[in-house]
């Protein structure tokens, strides 16, 4: 039996909102040691989502037997919207489940809402992602990255990211004209989450689909900062850290044809 109780529903609500536009169906893997993990790839095989919610993400967590819960994320999102962000949220499943029980509790108002979501058999590819060597790692405010990704998408369907030891430059080249935004590395000791940190082994110049970057920044409400690891001619990794876990996106680059 699985029983995972979150102190607030907001984490799960934000996680599902962050991934449901990229993948429609996914398997939730549940185990006592790892908590809940998800790996899902979008239909175009360009963007991969890796979610880890350790048992420490939960107020209470037990999973007697490893479980795979196949979910339609649009349906899960409909149910998660029924609860308030500050409600307790508990996920419950039997050992051979055909549904997932989702319970919201508002202890102050003595309100308990229960929903049952039908599970599905989902046959999806799982990819082996090794810890990658990277040419550079950038940590910046998640909102600053989201603004660049959203703004530049209006100019071009591609966004070029150029990193040197003291700045990150985003460049868009579209039919109406061009644009660039430079963010300089800075350390803000008073407010460390406002810092822009660049750890550079080698300068990087990579181009990504603006549409996918806009899917990634849907995770912005989950964390103050995002860490981006880039390597020449390889997929980029975007990480939003959660308390006791993470939501990562792996995005394949674009190349000159």
């Amino acid at each position: 039996m699985l029983e995972g109780k979150f102190e607030t529903a907001s984490t799960m609500k934000k996680v599902i909102e962050a991934i449901k536009d990229s993948v429609k169906l996914c398997n939730l893997n549940c185990s006592q040691n790892d908590g809940i993990t998800v790996q899902a790839i979008d239909d175009s095989r360009v963007l991969l989502i890796a979610l880890k919610l350790d048992p420490s993400c939960f107020q209470e967590f037990r999973c007697d037997k490893d479980l795979v819960l196949g979910l339609d994320l649009e349906s899960l999102s409909k149910i998660l919207r029924q609860g308030n962000p500050e409600d307790y949220l508990t996920l419950i499943a039997e050992d051979s489940p055909d549904s997932l029980l989702i319970v919201f509790e508002d202890s102050k108002k003595d309100r308990i809402s229960e929903f049952s979501l039908k599970l599905m058999d989902i046959d999806s590819d799982v990819l082996t992602i090794d810890e990658m060597e990277h040419d550079c790692a950038i940590t910046l405010p998640a909102a600053a990255f989201a603004k660049v990704a959203r703004d530049m998408k209006t100019l071009s369907e591609s966004l070029q990211i150029l990193v040197t030891k003291d700045s990150v430059k985003f460049k868009a080249d579209g039919s109406i004209g061009t644009g660039s935004v430079i963010l300089r590395a800075r350390t803000n000791l008073d407010d460390t989450k406002e810092s822009i940190l660049i750890d550079l082994n080698k300068p990087v110049n990579l181009t990504f689909g603006a549409k996918y970057l806009n899917d990634i920044v849907k995770a912005t409400p989950l964390a103050d900062t995002v860490t981006i690891k880039l390597t020449d001619k390889a997929p980029a990794m975007f990480e939003y850290k959660l308390q006791g876990g993470f939501l990562r996106y792996y995005l394949a680059p674009k190349f000159e044809d």
């Binding site: 790839i41 175009s44 095989r45 360009v46 963007l47 991969l48 590819d125 799982v126 990819l127 082996t128 992602i129 591609s158 181009t207 689909g209 390889a234 997929p235 792996y250 394949a252 680059p253 674009k254 190349f255 000159e256 044809d257």
Partner: peptide
Amino acid sequence: QMKQASLLSFFSKA
């Protein structure tokens, strides 16, 4: 013209 790469060119199926 830029061409979009696939993740399958970088990661193998488990």
